[in-house]
């Protein structure tokens, strides 16, 4: 019987690999894709920044505005296609009755021409309460942005609590953002 084990070894290794791959696939369906790079910024204070306003009727984006309120910072750009898909979801989010007054949506127009960013918001409407322009992308680098859209949920103490890489989906908003928001606004 002892001599048999080398025969079964490859089958055993194969079975282990199948289990591993199946496990990873299940994780991906739950939104934990291995190509999403975990952020080192989580639980750290948001970096300091002071960006000029993009539109006339809303203030620019500053780090000082973060404390005291729960804020969702959304890096977007007029040239970014996934941002366009995400945009109606952000409008929906801000129109929810349970959100009103409990969340500030801060937009940062990332590496964009100001007139393009303004045109984009004119066409698609503007859900952002404060909105700044990050023309050279330097604030983006300070946040660890490596593509748009990316969003950061900041708690009342000004710490980064959650990072969304890529556009929000309705599932992300329902399953991750809203529960965390409820916890943070207690």
């Amino acid at each position: 019987m002892m001599r048999r084990w080398p025969t079964f070894l490859p089958i055993g290794v194969f079975a282990v690999l199948v289990c591993f791959f199946a496990w990873r696939l299940v994780l991906i369906t739950r939104g934990d894709a291995p190509n999403l790079i975990p952020s080192v910024m989580i639980d750290k204070p948001a970096p300091a920044f002071d960006l000029p306003p993009l539109v006339l009727d809303r203030p620019g984006a500053t780090g000082a505005a973060l404390t005291g309120k729960v804020t969702l910072i959304n890096f977007f750009s007029s040239w970014c296609i996934p941002c366009r898909a995400e945009h109606p979801l952000l409008i929906d989010l801000m129109n929810r009755s349970e959100i009103k007054g409990r969340l500030v949506l801060m937009g940062i127009d990332y590496k964009d021409k100001p007139e393009d960013g303004r045109g984009w918001l004119n066409r698609l409407s503007n859900p952002y309460e404060v909105i700044g322009m990050d023309r050279d992308g330097r604030v983006g680098i300070d946040f660890g942005v490596y593509g748009v859209p990316e969003s950061y949920l900041i708690d009342r103490q000004g710490r980064i609590r959650y990072k969304q890489v890529g556009p929000f989906t309705p599932e992300d908003i329902q399953g991750k953002l809203l529960p965390l928001l409820a916890e943070l606004s207690k």
Binding site: I37, P38, V40, M41, I141, D142, F143, G144, Y146
Partner: peptide
Amino acid sequence: LVDRYGDY
């Protein structure tokens, strides 16, 4: 850069 983007 590591402070912003991690060891990655």
